[in-house]
Design a protein around this nucleic acid. Structure first.
Lengths: 215, 215
DNA sequence: TTCATATGAATGAATG
DNA sequence: CATTCATTCATATGAA
């Protein structure tokens, strides 16, 4: 599927000319920047849709066409694929055994040692190890949360913008959910004359960042 | 030539020896181009905001009906309901710019100003800003533990079966004064080319964070 | 192809 | 501030 991730070098008859024409860092930068204005463009599309919809109601004409089909979508950037680390079976085994030792919280020093150990079996970085443990613990904990809560109620979550509800997200968020809108939130809410009204309604918590005035 | 000028950091990642065909200058060119586009888009958004707002406010004379509820549904609860704040690209840009300014720890007063500024681009609270800076600093500092004093990685190792890569986050740069333009600040920076001089909303950035009155 | 899932990585928020 | 937690995003892989 992704054999053409480096589509830059076409015309190769035989052999996979496998060269990177940009460093990951460069690619990351570009990706970021492109993503920025791609999102903005998406907002523009939404606005245009809104505007044309108004006109539509007046003239009765319909011209709702999407004129924005970028090469990538904010939901899935297909610009580049960043390869991610994959532990070798050997590494995985070692990691698993360390994890099973109960020393659930490997400190930084541990991480270094483990990384050094694992680097004998393949490329690896401390970040990889760190992430692995983080994920391992988090996911093992989530598995336990699948305790068949048998919630007899049916909380009707009508607002499922995500049709795929396979992920067992039966967790319980014990914190207040702030009515957060998505990235392109400028289209909703008040597009009235009060578009730019600052809504300084911060969900200020108890402590915040400064209990007192440090001035 | 200058294909190896940039101290990107990585030259050989895994088995694959790749060359850098993009120079700093090329990169800079792309960056600036994208920056221009981003700025244009940003201004377009503002323009459309003004337009839609105007239409809406003039609905009494034009439409005469409150039919301005096409797709947005001001009270649309079904857009997305996330518990966690996610900065919009524009907000991110602004935050990054501020962060790169080296003004380090923003004081409480700064936070307020920044929050006010960012609220023009989406829902945000002071806590969000504070957390962002906290995380930003902490994580950028964690980018220093991946190199060994005598780590000669000039060797091309192709023995491993794990095609992986380090984690070069885009912000490898410490907040040192980069000679290049900052990460496209699509915000206040009035487009030098004055592409679309439509700025009917002077109150977009009233205070900004320029007013440094911290204690 | 498309969908579903596992999982590495990113990150906002919380805790010390 | 330094670490950790919790959640989400993105990608690799396999099944339908």
């Amino acid at each position: 599927m992704e054999e053409e991730r480096r589509g830059g070098g076409e015309g190769v008859a035989e052999g996979v000319l496998y060269v990177k024409v940009m460093t990951d860092e460069q690619m990351e930068v570009l990706r970021r920047q492109i993503s920025v204005y791609a999102t903005i463009c998406e907002q523009l599309v939404e606005m245009h849709k809104a505007v044309t919809a108004q006109q539509d109601s007046l003239a009765g004409m319909r011209l709702g066409s999407l004129y924005c089909d970028p090469l990538m979508t904010p939901g899935g950037h297909k610009i580049t694929a960043r390869q991610r680390w994959t532990p070798t079976p050997m590494q995985l085994q070692i990691l698993e055994s360390i994890f099973d030792q109960g020393n659930g919280t490997p400190s930084k020093q541990k991480i270094k040692e483990i990384t050094l150990e694992l680097s004998q079996h393949g490329q690896i970085s401390e970040t990889n190890v760190y992430n692995w443990f983080q994920n391992r613990r988090a996911r093992s904990k989530r598995k336990q949360t699948a305790h068949l809560p048998n919630n007899s109620e049916s909380e009707i979550e009508a607002d499922d913008e995500s049709p795929n509800e396979k992920k067992p997200k039966s967790e319980k968020h014990t914190h207040e959910n702030l009515p957060r809108t998505d990235a392109l939130s400028i289209r909703g809410t008040q597009t009235n004359s009060d578009v730019l009204s600052v809504d300084p309604e911060p969900n200020l918590r108890q402590g915040m960042y400064a209990s007192n005035d440090s001035s």
